[in-house]
Write a protein that binds this DNA or RNA. Structure first.
Ligand SMILES: [Mn+2]
Ligand SMILES: [Mn+2]
Ligand SMILES: [Zn+2]
Ligand SMILES: [Zn+2]
Lengths: 138, 138
DNA sequence: CTCTATAATGAAAACGATTTTCAGTAAAGA
DNA sequence: TCTTTACTGAAAATCGTTTTCATTATAGAG
């Protein structure tokens, strides 16, 4: 299970395992859409009611630092997090329910070469993100 | 000049022309990189020292609403604005000096069709943004 | 299993960015 | 020139996030 992996990773990096952390990790690891710190807080309090919002922020910070989660940029805001992609992948988001999927195999080489030639830029990175409706929401 | 166009657009939408607004518009219209509200404030105060930060926020809001400027998402934050693209264009940003360029002619149709087929999503929109080093910064 | 060092906790306070309130000012049209 | 009311900046309020701090509990040593 993903939550177990993350907890083990935290431990291996010298962080302690606590009930608060476990609650946060379990919520985020199971999420099928990006969650804001406040959404994580609300959902995790169901498992562990003593949880403080501060600990949510602190735990998300550590998970991001270990590249286990990543921030998602959206028209409505850029504070939400989702499980990190592995390797070179991009996001596909449902505009209705928020479901997040990863995809890979984008071949932008020709495009990037052409832009580099036209502009004189040395292109180092690209952000590609798709928005649409998932099967359920169409 | 771009600033004139924007001021005319504001006027045509029933907004009044004031010295404060002129100062803000002139700074943003001439910018070659994305500026945060505070950066606009600092630069515009050189032209009009009585300017208040609140008016910067209010003016940016109106310019965005009229699609004359657009918000730029970057790893360091998502509060900065730049002149809006016309038609279907994407951004190319210098990771060193922040220079912003637009490009068009991205052909993602094949990619989008393949992702749609694989995932079952109806793809409606895409965000593509390139990062690199401009000619001067290489 | 007990003890100890200290990482982690939550409450409260602080903070920084943005928004709202408000009384005075000035743009624009009559 | 006069009148209406949109716009202004200062101050206060608000919102999300971070810091501070005294207390608690994890993890490793003994
Ligand atoms: Mn790619
Ligand atoms: Mn495109
Ligand atoms: Zn959906
Ligand atoms: Zn540059």
């Amino acid at each position: 299970m993903l939550a177990e992996t993350w907890l083990k990773a935290l431990q291996e990096h010298g962080y302690r395992l606590t009930d608060a952390r476990r609650a946060v990790v379990e919520i985020v690891a199971l999420a099928w859409r990006a969650l804001t710190p406040l959404e994580v807080f609300d959902q995790a309090r169901a498992k562990y009611p003593e949880l403080g919002l501060v600990t949510v922020y602190r735990t998300l910070e550590k998970l991001e630092e270990l590249h286990l989660i990543q921030r998602v940029h959206q028209p409505e805001g850029c504070q939400a997090f989702i499980t990190a992609s592995q390797g070179h992948q991009h996001l596909l988001l449902c505009q209705n329910c928020g479901q997040v999927m990863f995809f890979e195999g984008d071949d932008l080489d020709t495009l990037l070469a052409s832009i580099a030639a036209k502009t004189g830029y040395a292109i180092r990175e690209h952000w590609l993100q798709l928005f649409g409706l998932c099967r359920n929401c169409q």
